[in-house]
């Protein structure tokens, strides 16, 4: 199911429905990935986006461990332990795939050749700062992987997360309190309750799901604009 944005380009409140499910959220992210893009999907929830990319969209998936043209997860006889994704899960290759070593794979990111990456997050700030690699909690073992390289290198960084943590604390914040992954790098934020654009001018609500801009504004400590303001 694809939820269409407003054709007139105004902020849309999708009412009479609940928040987006994880699967619907992945579909909304997939909807916004331009045809023919080179895209990296982060570990975890972002990998679900691949299930919603139409085969004719010409999107080429990059995996940080050295491959363009990654196909779906491998099954049964297809499983080959030399062919895994960033989450170490066996995957398949599509026609036109290529392999390269790690320094090339990350040069591809850092050099600005990737169009879009989709990442999860603990927090995103109103300036687009991203915190997604480390809780900073005592005893937590820090592990960054390719998160900083992707956040810094991809032309567009899309983040998928719930807008509030389980205890109701907003994850879109004036200032990240978790250790940062990258500064002013997030351009779009996809959440269960709303889709946002983030620019140096601030945060703009593109769509809401099962809630209104006014209600979100009352729950977030961040100034929200709408497309109608732009």
């Amino acid at each position: 199911m694809i939820i269409a944005p407003d054709p007139a380009g105004r902020t849309t409140e999708h009412l009479g429905r609940g928040p987006l499910s994880r699967d619907e959220l992945a579909a909304v992210v997939a909807r916004d990935i331009p045809r023919g893009s080179f895209v990296n999907l982060g570990i975890g929830q972002p990998t679900m986006v691949a299930d919603h990319l139409p085969a004719d969209a010409g999107v080429v998936l990059h995996t940080e461990n050295g491959m363009l043209g990654m196909g779906p997860a491998a099954d049964g006889d297809e499983i080959d332990h030399d062919l895994v994704n960033a989450g170490k899960i066996p995957v398949t290759e599509l026609p036109g795939a290529s392999y390269f070593h790690h320094a090339d794979s990350f040069a591809m990111m850092r050099g600005g050749h990737l169009d879009v990456c989709v990442l999860g997050a603990f927090q995103v700030s109103e300036r687009g700062d991203l915190a997604n690699w480390h809780t900073g909690a005592p005893g937590a073992i820090p592990a960054v992987g390719g998160a900083m390289d992707l956040a810094t290198g991809a032309k567009d960084v899309f983040v998928m997360m719930t807008l509030f943590s389980k205890d109701g604390t907003p994850k879109l914040v004036p200032e990240c309190t978790y250790p940062l992954t990258g500064l002013a790098c997030v351009s779009r934020l996809y959440t269960d309750l709303a889709v946002f654009r983030i620019t140096p001018d601030g945060v703009t609500v593109v769509e809401t799901y099962g809630t209104t801009v006014r209600e979100l504004a009352s729950r977030l400590d961040v100034a929200l604009r709408t497309l109608d303001d732009d």
């Binding site: 940080e64 790690h102 320094a103 990350f106 390289d149 290198g153």
Partner: peptide, 28 residues
Amino acid sequence: PQGTLAERMRAAGAGIGAFYCPTGVGTP
């Protein structure tokens, strides 16, 4: 960071003394 790890070894193999990298700016 994973790409910096790869590039630091690439630099060692390529005779590069050090390099300026955008990854990690402003982070711990």
